[in-house]
Computed example of a mutant assay.
Amino acid sequence: MSQILKKYQVNSINNNEVKNVDFSNLSFWENANCLTDFSSPWDKNPISKIEFRALHDLENFYFNFRVFDTDVFIDKKDNSFDSIGNSDRVELFFRTNESLNPYYCLEIDTSGRIMDFKAHPDKDFDFNWNWPKNEIEVKTSKDEISFIVEGRISIQSLKDLNLIKNNALEAGVFSAKFSLAENLQYEPTWISWVDPNTETPNFHIASSFGKFIL
């Protein structure tokens, strides 16, 4: 039996609006629905507020994460995926179908580094795969109370990967927050839009996805 997916409405905008307005401008996002129902089902401690917004036009899917956190951890030892994986970040996953065969992952840290990879069930990751370079753009910024990770993904690349079906995308929206633990190591708190109902943190599972209605 197919799961009933949690839904988020991605409002459409006129292409002309984008040509005249920088998508990193706050006013650009006024027409977007604001998604805030994030949780960390495996952690009892309160999490920082997260706002997610998305819009689309004929050419691009636009996304914006605002995380109300100023104590940001970033691993700067190098620019490897390992380093990104040890940093505070936001994540967008897109799947072709409920069997996750395949699905595509974008994990973006607060400096705009992207860990992009193709995946198959049971955490079978292909790190040699990359999102087509000119089809994705990411920007980051911060203010006194939050950091922002936002970007655009071309509609064409989403179609080429067979991710848009019946004007919808099946997507996971996540965040990872690293905090200094008692053992003086940085330990992650895993945050998700959809509670996957797993005993331990796992985003790489069908039950962690919802649906973006375009």
Rank of each mutant, 00 (worst) to 15 (best):
Met1Gln: 06
Gln3Lys: 12
Ile4Pro: 01
Lys6Leu: 08
Gln9Trp: 10
Val18Asn: 12
Phe23Val: 05
Ser24Leu: 06
Phe28Arg: 00
Glu30Asp: 03
Asn31Trp: 07
Cys34Gly: 02
Leu35Ile: 06
Asp37Met: 00
Asn45Gln: 13
Asn45Tyr: 09
Ile47Pro: 00
Ile47Val: 09
Ile50Tyr: 00
Phe52Thr: 00
Arg53Met: 11
Leu55Val: 00
Asp57Cys: 10
Leu58Phe: 06
Glu59Arg: 11
Glu59Phe: 08
Tyr62Phe: 14
Phe65Ala: 02
Asp71Ser: 08
Asp71Thr: 12
Ile74Ser: 05
Ile74Thr: 14
Lys76Gln: 12
Asp78Leu: 03
Phe81His: 12
Ile84Val: 14
Gly85Tyr: 10
Asn86Val: 06
Asn86Leu: 15
Asn86Ser: 08
Ser87Gln: 07
Ser87Thr: 12
Asp88Val: 03
Arg89Phe: 05
Phe93Ser: 10
Ser99His: 07
Leu100Val: 14
Asn101Asp: 14
Tyr104Gln: 07
Glu107Lys: 10
Glu107Gln: 15
Ile108Ala: 03
Ser111Lys: 15
Arg113Met: 08
Arg113Lys: 14
Asp122Pro: 02
Phe125Asp: 07
Phe125Ser: 07
Asp126Trp: 06
Phe127His: 13
Asn128Tyr: 11
Asn130Tyr: 03
Pro132Gly: 02
Lys133Ile: 15
Asn134Arg: 10
Glu135Asn: 12
Glu135Asp: 15
Glu137Arg: 10
Asp143Ser: 11
Glu144Ser: 14
Ile145His: 03
Ser146Asp: 04
Phe147Leu: 04
Ile148Tyr: 05
Val149His: 00
Gly151Pro: 01
Ser157Ile: 07
Leu163Arg: 01
Asn167Thr: 04
Glu170Pro: 03
Gly172Trp: 01
Val173Asn: 04
Phe174Thr: 06
Asn183Gln: 14
Leu184Glu: 10
Pro188Cys: 10
Ile191Cys: 08
Thr198Ser: 07
Thr198Tyr: 11
Pro201His: 12
Phe203His: 13
His204Asn: 11
His204Met: 15
His204Val: 07
